[in-house]
Write a protein that binds this DNA or RNA. Structure first.
Lengths: 144, 144
DNA sequence: TATTGTTATACTCTATAACTATA
DNA sequence: TATAGTTATAGAGTATAACAATA
């Protein structure tokens, strides 16, 4: 666990050399999650990111300003905002990932392509299971 | 890379439920590095942790107050502080790791024991290679 | 009364710049 | 002049508490 913390720090520092002011790493993390899991309410996003609801607001503001995500009131529960990735958000995500390639190559220079694939797969499964299950998905957003 | 960032965040939150005010995750990361690499000057530690030298000062102060690390002037270059793990530091590290066990089990609940071992090994190699090589080790600290 | 999202605020973590001492 | 460590300070990131709207 300290190992992951350490590697994440090294990775973020490497990202700073590739990414400018936007997107920040947390933006990419959020976009990636929305891309993998589909639309979800804000509190679901916060739980999945282990991010305080008050911080989710600012994070989504920054993404929504740029048209990368959309917030819509859930008609079934008008307290909720359903957050979904826009087409521009998907494009931004893929473009960012392509830029990330260089930094990732340096960070994982010790691993073969096959080992990186194994690592990636293990991480996907770990994250997927560590994220709290999300229920109570509104009927018109089956992708949740 | 966003995946690692995400997992690291989940891990830190999980750690907060296990660790009290001390040690913080970065303390554990630093102790682990010193344990694996042996004594090194502060700037080497900062480079390996991708941490600014000014932050290294405070981090080491907190560790030194508790007797977990020692700072000694390098006789070969009196500007340098050689940082080494104390016996208490090693004990603290192992004790902390044992406490981490519970949180780690939850975080990696989706992985088998063998998969966790594979993941750990891949992470160790990735971190080891991503850390800048450290040269100019003083002769009386061969463990560098 | 409980929950979702929001705002305001404080606290932690990290980065930048200037300083001291050694080289 | 350059480097190692330190200090002071500012900025980014995150958490806590109180509030409005809805259930």
């Amino acid at each position: 666990m300290p190992l992951i913390d350490h590697l994440a720090r090294l990775g973020r520092r490497a990202l700073d050399t590739v990414l400018q002011d936007f997107p920040r790493p947390r933006h990419v993390v959020a976009l990636r999650l929305l891309h993998e899991r589909g639309p979800m309410p804000q509190h679901g996003l916060g739980a999945a990111l282990s991010l305080d609801p008050s911080n989710v607001v600012g994070l989504l503001n920054e993404l929504e300003e740029r048209g990368l995500v959309e917030r819509r009131r859930d008609p079934a529960d008008r307290r909720r905002h359903i957050v979904s990735l826009s087409a521009a958000g998907t494009a931004e995500l893929t473009q960012t990932y392509s830029r990330l390639g260089l930094a990732e190559d340096k960070l994982f220079s010790a691993l073969t392509a096959g080992e990186r694939a194994t690592l990636h797969q293990l991480l996907v499964r770990a994250v997927g299971a560590a994220i709290p299950p999300y229920e109570a998905c509104p009927s018109d957003f089956p992708a949740c």
